[in-house]
Design a protein around this nucleic acid. Structure first.
Lengths: 209, 209
DNA sequence: CCCTAGGGATAGGGTTAC
DNA sequence: TGTAACCCTATCCCTAGG
């Protein structure tokens, strides 16, 4: 009685897909407020959008026989749903092997197909910095590590537009990665530790009191 | 993704508590830079510390945990936090020379958790707030709606003991109810919409931001 | 410019109804 | 029983103010 479940309609699902295509995943509030889709999603909160997208992702990923079987817990949402019953006119995209510079395998920036020469760094999502940082350090291969200025320079040369406060954002991100053990800091330079990949925290030698 | 969410470990929480005990609340940068705790908190920014302390304060205080409802297993907290030890009233201080009770110098957390002759509000189940909120607003019948202070005052007068951080919890709950369309927010006041219960959700219109 | 306080939004775990 | 829808908490992000 208290909870008459509001089933999602096809229009709502379609609006959600379109919203994600336009704004990207994780921008639920923007999608919900977008006047282009808002009227279809007025009955849904941003949290509803997020939950529905999760459910759609789960359903889409389970089409095959591959059930949950791997002993190693992989990321549970590797498959963004793209059933798109509507004929999404894919622009006959020739499968050009693009350089893996910023190949985020999923949730690519829409970028509205502008002919921008540089792909801007999304300052609102410092999480996306990680691959850039790792690539920068890996490519430069400085045995002493790379300092923050070198990293910034590298990313800029990779034709990435950077926001004006990029140095600060990058600094924060670097500090975080060091804390996670995904980077190693020596002096003012950052290196990629050999043991990267395990979820081990930066224990290092916890001189616990 | 590398780090969708960095969950706090017990060591980090302990370091934060110790840091607050030493430096006081609001000195997040000092705590983070303190060599005594810094290595535990290297992965966290001063803002993270502030956020975590806020969250710990909310989660603490009320031990009403195991009723009949939802024996939610939560092994993620092996160390029962003591965010506000509420320093002993220091009556008859006789033997203890150490006073391990970290009397936070200038802590912001009130310690008004005395015996309740009133029915306490279960802070661990914000779901229980909804009937209280609805009753408060319905009874006051303010055509402009009731603001959060009025709602708190009403609930207190209803002989409900409220936790020290009730305002914050209530604010969160109100926000949620507005998002669900179960309440309507005008200015800083909350009203019960006419179409409540018919599945009508967030009707938008709140031109926020 | 750095820091803190607080509001706001998201991600993920859990629960409930069907 | 499984799953869609819903709820709750922890964390992260943004902005105003000192």
């Amino acid at each position: 009685m208290g909870a008459p479940k509001q089933k999602w309609t096809s229009e709502e699902e379609e609006a959600l897909r379109a919203g994600v295509a336009k704004h990207g995943t994780g921008k639920w509030k923007n999608i919900q407020k977008d006047p282009e889709f808002g009227h279809c999603l007025a009955a849904r909160s941003n949290i509803d959008l997020k939950d529905k997208w999760r459910n759609m992702s789960v359903s889409a990923g389970q089409g095959s026989r591959d059930k949950f079987r791997s002993p190693k817990p992989k990321p549970a949402i590797p498959t963004p749903p793209t059933p798109t019953p509507t004929p999404t006119p894919s622009i006959t995209r020739t499968t050009t092997t693009t350089t893996p510079s910023s190949s985020t395998p999923h949730d690519a920036m829409p970028s509205t197909l502008k002919d921008s020469s540089k792909s801007p760094v999304d300052a609102k999502n410092p999480q996306r910095y990680t691959p850039l940082i790792v690539e920068a350090i890996s490519t430069m291969k400085d045995p002493n590590g790379s300092d923050i200025s070198s990293i910034i320079g590298f990313i800029e040369e990779q034709r990435h537009e950077v926001p004006p406060n990029f140095r600060k954002l990058l600094s924060t991100k670097l500090r975080r990665l060091v804390g996670q053990g995904k980077l190693e800091k020596v002096q003012n330079c950052y290196k990629i530790p050999k043991e990267s990949g395990s979820g081990q925290k930066a224990s290092g030698g916890t001189t616990q009191k």
